Amino acid sequence: MKNALITGITGQDGSYLAELLLEKGYNVYGIMRRKSVVDYGNVDHIKDKLHFIYADMTDEISLINAMRISQADEVYNLAAQSFVATSWEQPLATAEIDAIGVTNMLEAIRTVKPSCRFYQASTSEMFGLVQAVPQCETTPFYPRSPYGVAKLYGHWITKNYRESYGLFACSGILFNHESERRGKEFVTRKITDAVARIKQGVLDHVELGNMDAKRDWGHSKDYVRAMWLMLQQDAPDDYVIATNETRTVREFVEIAFAQAGIQVQWQGTGVDEIGIDKATGKTIVKVNKDFFRPAEVQLLLGNPAKAEEKLGWKREISFAELVQRMVDNDMALVEKELKVAAL
């Protein structure tokens, strides 16, 4: 029976990965930051099957202690300040967690158990101002946010520890992946939550940023399977995990509303663009320039050919099903919320 240690276990990816590893018979340990109120987040439903260790990515001693307690055979580093907008407001904190924190974790592994296999959650945001379309493992990086820059450090320090110390250390360059467990601060979940509330008549409209931004969207459950596969190989390497399909934010909005039986009709362009409910004529989407990034990432499109060939990985959940799952989940949550409020 293998031991696995997951940082960021209470988040979207951490919860799906924890479920996957439990299914495969692992002892699963998860790192949590100590708070005044214990919050198990997305793993609340399986918390009794997990082993929690209090530690922090900015505190190397606590990570060494976590390694000693877990004696992990595999470490999955999913902990991050992962919201791009927040990285502009908290650039130093983002760097401490997303960049230096990776070094802290690698040092803990090197100190306690160098045979442990390590997965680093890299990101398509490292490509930023894209230098080639689609993006693959050899595409030059050009990050466009403090988040992307910090993640690029984490990516390169992982590669350096692999080549310098012989650690089995991999990076998964994951393109946008969403799910029903996504935080509401992310645009996809913001959209599906708003769709549910507009459908129920408790919200008039949703305000969004750049409707023309293009992303390669997949489902988190598919992507955590790729993480696990990377650590089962004979040799460590880095892989792009993506769908090789790109969609605009506008397309995501249209499909989400359609899932709730609402057809969106667009008027205007740029910051003056609005989306109207075709049946009622009411404005349900407004563009707000305050939600535009200081340096925009316009197009992300990943080529997962290497992962498909070497890992045997294939995404199973389509874009349409991803949006459907998210909308249906938020519809149920809002309906439940309204019933409780009516009691």
Rank of each mutant, 00 (worst) to 15 (best):
I284C: 15
Y76N: 06
D272Q: 11
V323H: 07
A18K: 06
V187K: 14
G154S: 03
N27E: 12
G312K: 03
A320G: 01
A235G: 05
V327N: 03
E296Q: 15
E245M: 01
A295S: 13
I173Q: 08
G25R: 12
S164N: 15
T248L: 09
L322W: 05
W228C: 00
D73L: 00
K278S: 15
L5C: 10
R162S: 12
I255F: 13
A279S: 15
I100Q: 07
P114L: 02
Y76T: 04
L333G: 00
E125S: 14
K47C: 06
G268W: 10
N244K: 14
S82D: 03
D204C: 07
Q324G: 03
Q131T: 07
E74T: 02
A341E: 06
I157T: 14
V133R: 05
K151A: 06
V75H: 03
F175L: 14
Q324T: 09
T248H: 03
R247L: 13
N288I: 08
E137W: 04
K24Y: 04
E316S: 07
I284V: 13
I173M: 12
V323N: 02
G209V: 08
Q232G: 14
K47T: 10
L208A: 09
N3F: 08
P134M: 02
V37F: 11
E89D: 11
F83Y: 10
D238A: 05
N210L: 13
E254Q: 10
G25K: 12
A258T: 04
G312T: 01
V297I: 14
Y76M: 06
T10D: 10
A85D: 14
I191T: 14
G30M: 11
G30K: 12
F127V: 00
L311G: 00
H45D: 13
A196N: 09
V334I: 07
K199W: 04
T123F: 10
K310P: 00
D13M: 14
D328Q: 14
L343E: 04
E178I: 04
F118Q: 01
C136E: 07
K49W: 05
I100V: 12
Q120F: 02
E337Y: 00
W217M: 11
V202T: 11
Y161V: 12
D44G: 08
V28K: 08
E251Q: 15
D237F: 06
P140W: 05
K151G: 01
T192P: 06
A132D: 02
V285R: 03
K190D: 07
G268T: 12
V249H: 08
V202H: 09
I97H: 01
D216Y: 02
I31N: 09
R117C: 01
E60D: 00
T243K: 13
D98T: 03
V249P: 02
Q131W: 01
Y142Q: 08
M32V: 15
V37W: 04
G41D: 11
V253D: 04
D216P: 03
T111M: 02
H177I: 05
S62P: 07
L78Q: 05
I198A: 14
D44N: 13
R225P: 09
E23T: 12
G218E: 06
A305W: 00
Y29E: 09
V133T: 12
I173F: 11
T58N: 11
Y119D: 07
I61R: 09
D330M: 06
A79C: 06
D98A: 02
V253T: 13
M57A: 15
K35V: 04
I31H: 07
E309V: 04
V202P: 11
P146K: 05
K47Q: 15
A80D: 03
L338E: 06
Y147M: 04
E19W: 04
E19M: 13
